[in-house]
Design a protein around this nucleic acid. Structure first.
Lengths: 233, 233
DNA sequence: GACCTGTTTTGGTACGACCAAAGTGGAGCC
DNA sequence: GGCTCCACTTTGGTCGTACCAAAACAGGTC
């Protein structure tokens, strides 16, 4: 590796930063393949070991997408990809109650705010969307697996209403990371019905444009859900 | 690599998952060093290239902490570490206005909700903390660099009030990723004073327990801030 | 007990070899 | 002229060996 980076630590880290900078500056564009490994070796004066470790780091941090037996390509950045990248670590935080609580409370803060915002600003189309999701939720009361899916879909509508990809990505993250808790929770039609009724209360408030009521209803729903989650510990 | 994982793709990916599972299941504990590379080679029947690539992936995803010339140790998972891990990718999203907007609006949603929650539930001690942060903000009006720091500190108090590490980590992430926008924004005492007054309005509402006013004040502040951010594009 | 020195352990890097998946180009056939 | 097949090339993936040097360790000496 060139001498001018002697203070920069491992050669693989230096090469990682070199490529990360090229990606950030648009010198390597989305969808574009990186150079072949043997060319990287020649161009940057490193071994294939160093080249491969730098590429591995780029892939692990979601900057490039490795494809079997192909040169990796620069990945389109997205909030969803970002959440996927940290999934393994966040998953570890789910092993402890305080990790689950932190995530759950952050989710609750956001969903309460989204419900409030929806009550204020949801379009007629969006309210209909919510109503359809609620109807599917009602239909699934007796089928706990389907109920879970429609429950998740109902909450997802709130994240979609503002049209912000970061929120939509966050919801997918939350749903994925909190799923282990959900999957061990006892589910039966009576409990499903209670959850459905909480959803209906939120919907009713949104439909009537009552932001305070929407906030209170979603808050109550999340609080009750947390109590259920606590039973999984 | 053992035959039973022949369908699992690259040997390095298989080994990555093996270690990730061991970490998740507590078989490798926080602070504990991973085995030496040469032992990994013997135990798992892979080459050092594969072992190093798996370790590189673990480090890049924040599961282990590599230390120069030392065996890596299992990293304590944290929301802060998770945000750091995706920093490079999120940084790329900041290269486009829609990426900045998505992150900013998510931040605004959260901070408005936090202001509202603070007005409802902040303790006397927390209100004093907020007041102190506001006072430091006032003192820094004529020094734009200091003003930025106190501005950030003032907002940080809202994230700290609920005592949720995920929120505190989120704030650090937002501040870091949105900093490039802030650093190219024109800053002068007059603008600083307007921002300070917006902070004062939020504080006043929190202090008097007026959740609606706190929400409106923080909403107005974030909307105005976004208009300033737009000037950087 | 502290210090020094030699040895060992270990991460970091280099290099060459080989395998096999995937792509490419040319020849032959219809 | 188009299609198919085959040989060759390109390239990622893995292996093994070698060497360097940072860091730790162990033993001896003061």
């Amino acid at each position: 590796m060139s001498i001018e980076n002697a203070n920069a630590g491992r050669a693989a880290d230096v090469l990682f930063r070199t490529f990360a900078d090229q990606i950030r500056l648009g010198q390597l564009k989305e969808g574009e393949a990186l150079p072949p490994e043997r060319e990287i070796v020649e161009r940057y004066g490193v071994s294939r070991t160093v080249a491969r470790e730098a590429l591995q780091a780029l892939a692990s941090r979601g900057l490039i997408e490795a494809r079997p037996r192909h040169r990796p390509i620069v990945r389109r950045p997205s909030y969803e990809a970002a959440f996927e990248t940290v999934g393994t670590m966040i998953g570890r935080l789910m092993a402890k109650e305080e990790g689950v609580r932190a995530l759950f409370e952050m989710r609750a803060l956001i969903e309460v705010a989204l419900a409030r915002q929806a009550a204020k600003m949801a379009t007629k189309t969006q309210v209909i969307q919510l109503e359809k999701a609620l109807e599917a939720n009602a239909q699934a009361i007796d089928d706990s697996a389907a109920f879970y899916e429609t429950d998740r879909a109902f909450h997802a509508v709130f994240y979609e209403i503002p049209g912000n990809p970061a929120l939509e990505a966050a919801h997918k993250g939350y749903a994925t990371w909190l799923h282990p808790q959900w999957s061990i929770m006892p589910r039966h039609p009576q409990r499903n019905k209670i959850n459905y009724e909480a959803h209906a209360a939120v919907f009713k408030s949104v439909h009537s444009g009552d932001a305070d009521a929407a906030e209170d209803a979603m808050r109550a729903h999340m609080d009750a859900a947390w109590k259920q989650v606590c039973k999984t510990f």
